[in-house]
Design a protein around this nucleic acid. Structure first.
Lengths: 190, 190
DNA sequence: CCTACCGATCGGTAGG
DNA sequence: CCTACCGATCGGTAGG
């Protein structure tokens, strides 16, 4: 296996272990076993345990930031379509990059400084952009008048089960998840 | 401080540390510092680190099971009212027992057997009861026809931000959170 | 890529 | 409730 392939494999297995056991409870010896190396040999491919976490967290943060920017700047979409596009984005990320996104969601708090502050800043920016969109919809009269923070976090949280629940190849189709969640969140369950 | 008060204090501080740093990253020495004891003295009050986690997880699981039973057996409530009552229950638990409920939500996976299996069984039962209620609503025509699992987990997830976000004494009132979340989830945002 | 090893820290116990 | 200490395990390095 080429060196860069081995590194990719290490990152993938690490993401899965971080998701299943959490970052602190994942040992480098266990990770090494799973990629068939000795623990010390991991350090030929990666700089440290935390560097793996940094890669996972910031790769995903940059991906979300990029997609958000694309949606914000797309002038052919109205507010409702933009919110729907964001719902779809979260479902796609959660189903395509399952393990990585879970680590991103739950394990970022184990980053050390200054990475922790940088990460939280990116997160705040993403949430701010999402919230501004909701507020715009409320001002237009497209959405009901509500506290924008409560609504924002209710929406953002509602995707979190996917990371635990979705298994590739499951009988349920991603398109069905998208359709049903968009309808439930936009129009309610009744 | 009486012995049982000290034990209560230990459980409370432990729940907060488990929430903030996660169970594996919380050391007994750090916990001891925060309750002004030496690590070894903790063991006069508790049996082990995991026993604390067990107490937190099963206290909350039993509370949710009890409340679910009360709602199920309350024949004066229709399906919509029962779902609203469950939404309120989750918001009350999240705001009144913040730290404990977060540990319950995120750290149960660190339980050892047979506690892990027992916990997962209780969780499955709770989810099954909630799902049955949603399915009954769909059969009655009260709720839209949808995949009950997707809907169940979307609802259950949507509360999870509260554990991170809600701070006692915040300007925002619990009643407002309840009213807005019930409306958003039952009737949608548009 | 491995063997051998480092200091630090872990949960927990003995004994008083 | 403390001091003193246990074996186990941690992330990581030296050296080849």
């Amino acid at each position: 296996m080429a060196n860069s392939q081995k590194k990719q494999k290490i990152l993938e297995v690490a993401a899965r272990l971080f998701r299943d056991k959490g970052y602190p409870a994942t040992s480098m010896r266990h990770l090494a076993d799973e990629v068939q190396l000795k623990a010390s040999s991991l350090y030929n491919h990666i700089g440290s345990k935390e560097e793996i976490l940094q890669t996972i967290c910031f790769d995903n943060a940059h991906r979300f930031a990029k997609e958000m920017k694309g949606i914000q700047e797309n002038s052919t979409l109205d507010v409702t379509e933009k919110v729907k596009a964001l719902i779809q984005l979260h479902i796609e990320m959660a189903t395509q990059e399952i393990t990585s996104v879970t680590a991103f969601n739950d394990e970022w708090r184990h980053l050390s400084e200054p990475h922790l502050s940088n990460f939280m800043k990116m997160r705040k920016e993403y949430e701010g952009a999402f919230k501004a969109l909701l507020q715009k919809g409320m001002e237009e009269g497209t959405f009901k008048q509500k506290n924008a923070s409560i609504l924002l976090y209710t929406l953002l949280s509602s995707f979190r089960w996917l990371y635990d629940w979705y298994k590739p190849g499951k009988s349920i189709q991603i398109q069905q998840i998208k359709d049903e969640m968009i309808d439930s969140l936009m129009n309610g369950i009744s």
